[in-house]
């Protein structure tokens, strides 16, 4: 995974609550067996009309927002289906950071596996940040310091240390867990004597 570096971008603002993963990437695009190429179908039903024509009014179709790396959205972002196609599509489009007052759990986790930083912050701050989107002004996100800079203001955001480290260093989860594989061996040994029916699945 690519290492996460600091971001400076004009944010796009989607003032909707409960943006679900069906909205982020509809089912017809889940038939792929690849991780790439989903960016053009991101928010498909909001971005294109019935004939597949780009809707000029949708924010991500407009300059300069079509190059936004930061997305601001209403609460409970990423609810619904577990499809990792949602962060794949966002990342492929160029979104590297999503700021909302709350995220659905599975989506939140999926972001980190794909080099996307989801930031949880109060609705008050989101509404301040949305002004920057409206005025087409840049904001800056510093992952190391866990800070967002806008105008002459700085706000801190919370983040799990381990997740932060993985993003910064671009660490691969499987590699990390493989280093602990002797613990798994021991665990299985104990289980095969304590609860043999679990490993004996016929």
């Amino acid at each position: 995974m690519d290492k996460f570096s600091n971001l400076t971008s004009i944010p796009s603002y989607l003032p909707l609550q409960n943006i679900d993963t069906d909205m982020i990437i509809p089912k017809q695009f889940l038939k792929t067996i690849k991780r790439t190429g989903l960016g053009k179908s991101l928010f498909y039903e909001m971005r294109y009309d019935e004939n597949g024509k780009l809707l000029k009014d949708f924010i991500l179709n407009k300059e300069p927002f079509n190059k936004s790396k930061i997305l601001l959205a209403g609460k409970n972002f990423g609810c619904g289906s577990s499809r990792e196609h949602a962060p794949w599509a966002l990342s492929d489009f160029g979104i590297k950071c999503i700021i909302s007052s709350s995220f659905a759990d599975i989506f939140y986790n999926n972001c980190f596996k794909n080099g996307i930083l989801p930031i949880k912050i109060s609705e008050q701050i989101i509404s301040e940040l949305s002004e920057y989107s409206k005025r087409k002004e840049e904001i800056k996100v510093d992952l190391k310091k866990q800070e967002i800079f806008f105008g002459n203001k700085t706000v801190k955001f919370e983040l799990d240390n381990f997740k932060k480290k993985c993003l910064i260093e671009g660490l691969d989860d499987i590699d990390l867990s493989m280093q602990k594989i002797n613990h798994v061996d021991n665990f299985e040994k104990k289980m095969s004597s304590d609860k043999p029916w679990i490993l004996l699945n016929e």
Partner: peptide, 23 residues
Amino acid sequence: AFGIGTSEVEHVLATQTLIQKKS
């Protein structure tokens, strides 16, 4: 029992474990 993303599916296939924080 809970849903996971595709990267986690790969993690489970490879290690039979998952990285989690307790809810």
